[in-house]
């Protein structure tokens, strides 16, 4: 087998656990006990720490860790004109979050994530991904009190997210991830998700990735391949790689971000398990189109758990690469 220079690239999905000092500061900030500047100082410290953490682990493509974000939809909504934030709603178990509420015409107020991306990128020579939430997901995860239907809401979100994506690219991001986890929930709305996302990606030259998780992708496949991005990042460990049979029937034509770590499980999966998971995919996708990462963001794990899990992942990839080069 002819192996390209880069294959089995390692990365993560986006979020990392926030350190205790930052959690405390966020609570204090919400009670107006500290200023925005004081909070931001700690967010920067945490970002710096998480960049170092990823470099030390030897990951190839880094993320900023989302230290300054709460929920992935709510974070953007907090900055958009036409949005407010709801009271608490339950996500699962004892976890609660606040949802965006669209109350007026959506408008882009200027760059939202660009300064953070620039800051994170200034701390490393490895590429840092730009991270956005996709328009379909923003629509699906918001309460809507303004637009008359779901399509209008999704397309309104795509206008503002497109501007943010262009601003990230202009700042130098070579890789932009636009997450659409909600896509898996309503197969009949996949065309809308594609239409909305294409308005975001059509003018981008950067590598585009879309992450999705915890849904029945089988129902969407192979139509899912029409999403206008170069890479689909899929949660696979949690669902026991049941997509592989489908990939045999309908070839997976994009790059895959292959989830190999179950992020809702405390236990670290052994290196051998991870290797096997990756090897299973070789049957259907060549190594140069495989990016290896956890199932989803790691924000619900502890840093120690994340470290052990990722260490095993990086080790597994290292060994596999060696084996591939030996037998190539």
């Amino acid at each position: 087998m002819n192996l390209p220079k880069t294959f089995l690239t390692t990365t993560t999905v986006g979020s990392f656990p926030k350190p205790d000092y930052l959690k405390k500061a966020r609570t204090q900030f919400s009670k107006k006990e500290i200023t925005r500047e004081e909070l931001e100082k700690l967010e920067k410290r945490a970002t710096q720490e998480i960049i170092q953490f990823q470099e030390k682990l030897g990951l190839d493509i880094l993320v900023d860790g989302e230290m300054y974000r709460g929920d992935m939809a709510t974070f953007f909504a907090e900055h958009l004109t036409g949005c407010k934030i709801s009271g608490l709603v339950r996500s699962y178990g004892n976890r609660y979050y606040r949802k965006p509420v669209v109350i007026g015409k959506l408008e882009w107020p200027g760059p939202i994530t660009v300064d953070w991306w620039k800051y994170a990128q200034s701390l490393t020579h490895k590429p840092v991904k730009g991270m956005l939430t996709g328009p379909y997901t923003m629509m699906d995860w918001s309460f809507n009190e303004y637009y008359s239907n779901r399509r209008d809401t999704a397309l309104a979100f795509s206008e503002v997210i497109a501007q943010e994506a262009l601003a990230l690219e202009k700042a130098g991001a070579v890789c932009i991830q636009i997450d659409e986890p909600a896509v898996s929930t309503k197969p009949e709305e996949l065309p809308l998700a594609i239409e909305a996302l294409s308005r975001v990606t059509q003018n981008l030259k950067a590598k585009t990735i879309s992450h999705m998780c915890y849904g029945e992708f089988a129902k969407l496949y192979p139509k899912l391949l029409d999403l206008p991005v170069q890479q689909l990042d899929l949660e696979m460990a949690n669902s026991d790689y049941d997509m592989i049979e489908l990939f045999k029937k309908f070839p997976f034509t994009k790059e895959i971000g292959l989830g190999v770590l179950d992020v809702h499980n405390h236990a670290a999966e052994p290196k051998e398990t991870i290797k096997k998971r990756i090897q299973t995919i070789f049957e259907v996708i060549p190594p140069e189109r495989i990016y290896v990462d956890p199932d989803c963001g790691l924000k619900t794990r502890t840093l120690e758990e994340s470290e052990t899990k990722l260490k095993n992942m990086v080790e597994a990839v290292k060994e596999l690469k060696k084996e591939l080069l030996t037998y190539a």
Binding site: S91, Y92, G93, D140, W141, Y214, N238
Partner: peptide
């Protein structure tokens, strides 16, 4: 077992 999306909602169940 693990979490699964509860129908078409951004809500999960074990």
């Amino acid at each position: 077992n693990g979490l699964l999306r509860f129908f078409d909602n951004n809500v999960y169940y074990r």
